[in-house]
């Protein structure tokens, strides 16, 4: 009887762990999806719809926008650095003033979604 109860308890805990794992994976996917929309609406004008740094404004800028599909460049940046660059602008991470601060325009959650999407661009999409 006790053995059956232990098995049931282990099964319940395992189910909970699997459910939590699934939820976190889904939540990450969902955040990156929102990041994709935010990227299209705000970032793509300079960084390009595909994130290659070749947006419609790029030819008119004195500093080339970052190529977010450059795997080696992007993995050298932590999520915190990317968040800071988006939130406080390029100058805050010793980059160009042409990268504006979005922290007064986008919420911290939206910026986190953008960072999640940047990770998709650099490291998952071909």
């Amino acid at each position: 009887m006790r053995l059956a109860r232990n098995h049931a308890s282990i099964l319940a805990q395992a189910s909970l762990m699997v459910a939590t794992l699934c939820w976190s994976v889904l939540a990450t996917a969902s955040d990156a999806d929102n990041g994709r929309i935010l990227y299209r609406n705000n970032c793509s004008q300079c960084h390009g719809l595909k994130g290659t740094g070749k947006g419609i404004n790029a030819p008119h800028l004195e500093v080339a926008p970052r190529n977010h599909t450059d795997h080696d460049e992007m993995i050298a940046r932590t999520d915190e650095e990317l968040f800071k660059a988006i939130s406080e602008g390029g100058q805050s991470v010793n980059k160009s003033v042409l990268m504006p601060n979005w922290g007064k325009t986008l919420s911290p959650e939206e910026i986190e979604d953008l960072v999640a999407y940047l990770r998709v661009l650099c490291c998952q999409e071909q």
């Binding site: 004008q45 300079c46 947006g55 419609i56 404004n57 008119h60 004195e62 003033v97 042409l98 990268m99």
Partner: peptide
């Protein structure tokens, strides 16, 4: 252009500046 970065999206002459704004 340089300090505020407005020229990244906006044109201040018919020939010069960004085109999204």
């Amino acid at each position: 252009v340089k300090f505020k970065g407005c020229g990244g999206c906006h044109r201040d002459t018919p020939e010069y500046g960004g085109v999204s704004g």
